[in-house]
Amino acid sequence: MRDFSYLRATSADAARQAATLPGAMLLAGGTTLIDLAKCGVAEPDMLVDITHLRGLDRIEIDERGAILGALARMGHVADHDDIKSRFPAISEALWQAASAQIRNMATIGGNLMQRTRCPYFRDPSNFAACNKRVSGSGCSAIGGVTRGHAVLGTSEACIAMYPGDLATALVALDATVHLGDRRILVDDFFLLPGTTPDKEHAIEPGEMITAIEIPSSAAARRSTYLKIRDRQSYEFAAASAAVGLELESDGRTIRDLRVALGGVATKPWRAHAVEAALKGKVLEPNAVRTASLLAVEGAVDHGANRYKIELAPRVVARAILKMGETA
């Protein structure tokens, strides 16, 4: 790690101000930032530690929804009884992420800022070309080892997969990011790589994530997060799906459906086409499987990651059907 200075922020405003200084970065749980600093990807001149700020770690839940303070830690949110009962997909996405230790460190806000696991991105000393690190430098991943790379939302500039779990569930449940007073849908907070893969989030200098708001809904209450991976635990998703379901009073017709995919796209991937195809229809296995294929419309593989195109719709279908089985 290069040398840097350390500033312990005394207020959120002071933190935001300090973070606008050249080379300054906000430090929360550190599970991404310190890791990337050791890889030489992050090269901060100053870290502004916000983990000691008070009042930013709230977990508040009422009829309208949940507000998760930016500094609420993943493990605490995962284990929160009201989150488990009203937003099961959120709890499930969280407890299946990383390890218990990392979940005790990582914050909700920081988790949204998690970076890709693309091995070329993470290895600047050996692979100079990475458009995500240095705009216009090229992409080392294309033509390389790609089993873990994205099949959705890619561009010629970048195929790096977004590895997070929580944001996938947040996107499915129409959650909003609070950047101080500004509100933005989580779905819009994450940007497609396009020609600027270095710009990952719709956050501007001087802004700081302060909270995440998840609106209550019947679909949120009946939701799940299904994560498929080689290893049983402590691994990023090969493919995952966050699904929320609301049925009509007949118990079989789909009134509301939320579907988002993880592990397969360059950002948390909302599958509106699947939702549209099934809303108003009777929940029935064949219809669900057929509609789930729409989740990977437009997918492009890069060799070893082709299986994700096959796998992802099956994960979606399984998650929807599983929700259909719950009373």
Binding site: G143, V145, R231
Partner: peptide, 29 residues
Amino acid sequence: LHEEAVTDRRSGRIQNANLAEYHVPVNAD
């Protein structure tokens, strides 16, 4: 079921030279 070092054929470098992506079983496996 788990272990494999994966080499980038162009550079000859192992692309999962770490314990997150070079998989050994975890307790849950």
